[in-house]
Nucleic acid binder design. Structure first.
Length: 96
DNA sequence: AGCCTGACAGATA
DNA sequence: GTATCTGCCAGGC
């Protein structure tokens, strides 16, 4: 693996304040990773050490596997949520 | 080497 | 609004 960007991804996610979120695409752009899928891969493998639930998809939802856990955590942090358990990206998106 | 899969995004129907 | 396709990069077999 190219562990170089892994540290950067984890670092960025770790800097995201509670109640704020980022899309995979945003993280990818911030760290310079060539593709949002790699961000997801990083979190899937080493995400257990960071606040992975603050990184979500462009439509404000997570994959079915994470939906329950992530929604619970985000709600506990006071993240702006829209009806349906979706995150209000317009209000919760972190600039960095 | 080739082929399939994935915690994605954007476009299209 | 949902369903499907394509492009992207990395990893596993």
């Amino acid at each position: 693996m190219a562990a170089s960007y892994v540290e950067r991804v984890l670092d960025v996610v770790d800097r995201v304040p509670a109640g704020r979120v980022l899309t995979y695409g945003d993280v990818a752009e911030l760290v310079g990773v060539a593709g949002p899928r790699q961000v997801g891969r990083v979190l899937a493998t080493w995400g257990d050490a960071v606040a992975w639930w603050r990184v979500l998809r462009a439509d404000g939802t997570h994959a079915p596997r994470l939906r329950a856990e992530a929604t619970r955590r985000l709600r506990a942090e006071g993240t702006p949520m829209r009806d349906g358990g979706r995150v209000d990206l317009a209000a919760a998106r972190w600039a960095g």
